[in-house]
Deep mutational scan, measured.
Amino acid sequence: AVCQVIGMYDYTAQNDDELAFNKGQIINVLNKEDPDWWKGEVNGQVGLFPSNYVKLTT
């Protein structure tokens, strides 16, 4: 993983390639090539999510 982030809001996947997560959930970021849509993993599920829905862990 590149880094870990925390969901600031609940996110519901809109497409099959997206990653759903809940507020407060830890997401392992796998790829930040696109500044707006990062690739991440939660509980074995991998997908894209909007980078503005998360904050970096300290």
Rank of each mutant, 00 (worst) to 15 (best):
A1T: 11
A1V: 13
V2T: 11
V2A: 07
V2E: 13
C3D: 13
C3S: 07
C3V: 08
C3Q: 05
C3L: 08
Q4S: 10
Q4L: 06
Q4D: 00
Q4P: 02
Q4A: 02
Q4F: 04
Q4R: 09
V5R: 02
V5G: 09
V5A: 13
V5S: 02
V5F: 03
I6Y: 06
I6L: 07
I6E: 13
G7Q: 01
G7M: 04
G7R: 02
G7A: 15
G7H: 07
M8D: 05
M8F: 10
Y9C: 15
Y9N: 15
D10Y: 02
D10M: 14
Y11N: 00
T12C: 07
T12P: 09
T12V: 11
T12K: 11
Q14W: 04
Q14V: 10
N15R: 14
N15T: 14
D17G: 15
D17F: 09
D17M: 13
D17S: 15
E18H: 11
E18M: 04
A20V: 06
A20G: 15
F21L: 04
N22T: 14
N22G: 14
K23M: 07
K23D: 01
K23S: 11
K23R: 15
G24S: 06
G24W: 06
G24E: 01
Q25H: 12
I26F: 06
I26A: 10
I26K: 13
I27Y: 06
I27M: 04
V29A: 03
V29N: 04
L30W: 07
L30N: 07
L30F: 12
L30S: 03
N31M: 10
K32A: 15
E33F: 05
E33W: 00
E33Q: 13
D34P: 06
D34H: 11
D36R: 14
W37A: 06
W37N: 06
W38P: 01
W38R: 00
K39G: 12
K39I: 07
G40E: 03
G40W: 00
G40I: 03
G40N: 04
G40H: 02
E41I: 00
E41H: 07
V42R: 10
V42H: 10
N43L: 08
N43R: 08
G44K: 00
G44V: 03
G44T: 01
Q45T: 11
G47T: 00
G47A: 03
G47H: 00
G47V: 03
G47I: 02
L48T: 11
L48I: 14
F49Q: 05
F49L: 06
F49A: 03
F49V: 08
P50N: 04
P50A: 07
S51H: 07
S51W: 01
S51Y: 00
N52Y: 10
Y53C: 14
Y53E: 04
V54W: 03
V54F: 02
K55C: 12
K55R: 14
K55L: 09
T57L: 12
T58S: 12
T58D: 14
